[in-house]
Design a binder for these strands. Sequence first.
DNA 1: GCCAACGTTGGC
DNA 2: GCCAACGTTGGC
Length: 134
Amino acid sequence: MAYWLVKSDPETYSFERMKKEKKTMWDGVRNYAARNNLRAMKKGDLCFFYESMNGEPSVVGIVKVAKEAYQDPTTTEDWSVVDLEYNKALKPVTLKQVKANAKLSQMALVRLSRLSVQPVTDAEWQEVMKMSGS
DNA sequence: GCCAACGTTGGC
DNA sequence: GCCAACGTTGGC
């Protein structure tokens, strides 16, 4: 099983809403690297849900891949979406904390700050989980 | 709201 | 195929 991180501006789609709706179609990705990552997701993979452009940008929870990549129905161009379902909330781990942790210095979140769908290694996943007290 | 970083577009 | 111009993301 692989791990990922998906970003969202809470004004567009918050984790709170994810929790309420249980499941959502993750659309709007318009970046090739992010699209490739979407397409590599397998059903059952877990993703950190990261809220950006917030007072305190943070990993706030976990969502699960419910349906693998398919054509984005909101466009006729070649873009993909996946379905994500709510899994669990976490005690938030802020970007500040991630940046301060030497073990996470290679994380895409730090190095490729603008990539909206990114892979997370097993080690990084475990470390962030540890930081959230889980 | 500003601006740095970076991805994309388009002229040559 | 290079690179300047432009647009967008996202941290602060």
